[in-house]
Amino acid sequence: MAGLDGFGTQFQRGDGAGPEVFTAVADVTNVSGPGLSRETIDVTSHGSPNAYMEFIGGLKDGGEVSIDVNYDPGNHDALIDDFDDDAPRNYRIVFPDADTTTWAFKAVMTGFEPEAPYDDKLAATLTFKVSGKPTIS
């Protein structure tokens, strides 16, 4: 198989209730991330074989997720509450594959950047910093 069509991917926001209900953020045009990364720890010693540096895995970072939306103040300005909230909220990305793969994570919104060009649509980019380990199901 050469690849999958990304059309239909959803970025969903949890309501914080129990049981939690997730609602798709309206008019998402692009989802990027989470950009997972990992630090390395240098464990090189005078006895390292062949004079090559040696490393082991260190702390992992869940990275960031950004979404682009066709900005509609009526649909998206409620998300400013997420920006004002210091506590991480539950979000998830639901992919349109045969298994409906889902990446779930806690995150803090770190950016909300609307744009209104004179010759194009209203748009906004929302950025989220992942807190902890994302789960894939």
Rank of each mutant, 00 (worst) to 15 (best):
F105M: 11
T29N: 10
E64P: 02
F55E: 08
N30S: 12
M53R: 14
T100I: 02
G58S: 13
A98C: 07
I41E: 10
S37G: 10
G74A: 06
D77H: 04
F55K: 15
V25K: 03
S66W: 07
I67N: 01
D86C: 11
L36S: 02
E54R: 14
D85L: 08
N75K: 15
D42H: 06
G35N: 15
V69I: 13
D99A: 13
P96Y: 01
L79V: 10
T40L: 15
F95A: 03
Y52E: 11
V69D: 04
V25F: 03
M53F: 10
D84Q: 10
G33A: 01
F83L: 12
A51E: 15
P73R: 00
D72Y: 04
S66R: 08
G62S: 02
D77A: 02
G62M: 01
G57R: 08
T29M: 09
D77W: 01
L36F: 06
Y91Q: 15
V94E: 05
F83A: 03
V94W: 00
P34V: 04
I93W: 01
T44I: 06
F55T: 14
G47K: 14
A104D: 08
K60G: 08
T102N: 04
I67G: 02
V25L: 06
L36W: 12
E64A: 04
L59M: 09
P96K: 01
P34G: 01
G62F: 01
N50G: 12
I80L: 13
G47L: 15
Y91H: 11
R89P: 04
D81C: 00
T101Y: 01
S37D: 10
L79G: 05
G47D: 15
T100A: 05
S32R: 11
S32F: 06
D85R: 12
R92F: 06
G63M: 03
G63I: 00
G63C: 00
D72W: 02
A98F: 11
G57Y: 15
L79D: 09
A78F: 10
I93S: 00
D68Y: 06
N50T: 15
S37A: 10
P34R: 04
D42I: 05
N30C: 06
D82V: 12
V69G: 03
D85Y: 09
F83Q: 02
D68N: 12
A24D: 11
D84Y: 13
E39V: 07
G58W: 08
N90H: 10
L59K: 10
